[in-house]
Design a protein around this nucleic acid. Structure first.
Lengths: 153, 153
DNA sequence: CACTTGCTTCGAGTGCACTCCAAGGCGCTA
DNA sequence: TAGCGCCTTGGAGTGCACTCGAAGCAAGTG
């Protein structure tokens, strides 16, 4: 099914699903690797690499062996992308995914992992806010609106 | 001058200066590399490397050739540390420092660099906030307080 | 004096996360 | 049927930011 056919059938495009991954994702394989690449910002190389190392479950293939990603794949990818973007190492993402494959009995461990990452995210927020204040101040100085109170940089 | 002597003389310790780099920094060389390492969280190796690549001006030496960092060095290091912590590449930090060495006539370029980084910081803040919301939601689900509305991860 | 601790240098090594390459196949359009 | 773009694979390469090792010197302590 082409992207155009998807639209005509009332299905959401790859980009839409990736950017707003809500609702029960279906597992129909319909997105090509280049569509997913464009939607996610990851290169096709990286998408294949994610699959190779186990971050993504083996993706469905077309009759000719090409990858076709489902909405469920996009949902996972969107979540993983968030984790990655906020500094979670790939090794930790992998651990999370492997726990998820174990099903319900690993939910406590998964929760721990997310709690730890939430703390990391909060620390980063604090660092960024503090730096933003410093930058604002320095930029004000460069704008000449404030006397500089510390020389040298 | 030892750290103890500095305290007795009413001078701020290396750690204090690094964590709260305000006021006009003096250029008296008095902090050892291990003090600076402890205060900054950077290893001695990394401090020497920063100097080698030009991020820090050549640091003063004791009679026996050991590095003695001034408060001014700590101020710069604290600022560079903020840039680094918020994702500025070392190459950009270097560019900023080299501009600063050119003096007043490069202030417009320095301002541009800081403006660009401020935008990058703001983007990161947006990403982190969005991710925090997702994490909060998922953690609520794991806590059993909410029905999960999307399966699989 | 011996010992420990910490410092010096240069250059090589590490870990992470991609990123790319070479060689070849599929299928659509002209 | 030729061309084109996109796809496949395993493995090798890249860039960044450290990080460490080896060999040796100097200051401080029991």
């Amino acid at each position: 099914m082409t992207a155009l056919a998807s639209i005509e059938a009332g299905l959401r495009t790859c980009c839409e699903v990736f950017q707003d991954p809500v609702g029960a994702p279906d597992r129909t394989p319909r997105h090509t690797i280049s569509e997913v690449s464009a939607a996610s910002g990851l290169t096709a190389h990286t998408l294949r690499w994610y699959e190779r190392i186990g971050l993504l479950d083996p993706v469905d293939r077309s009759a000719s062996g090409q990858r076709r990603y489902s909405d469920a794949d996009l949902h996972r990818l969107a979540f993983l992308g968030r984790l990655r973007l906020t500094g979670m190492p790939v090794a930790d993402m992998l651990r999370y995914v492997e726990l998820a494959r174990e099903g319900e009995r690993s939910s406590a461990a998964r929760r721990e992992l997310l709690l730890a990452h939430r703390e990391a995210v909060r620390r980063q927020l604090a660092d960024l806010h503090a730096t933003l204040a410093v930058l604002d101040h320095k930029i004000d100085v460069y704008n000449g609106r404030l006397a500089r109170c510390a020389p040298s940089h």
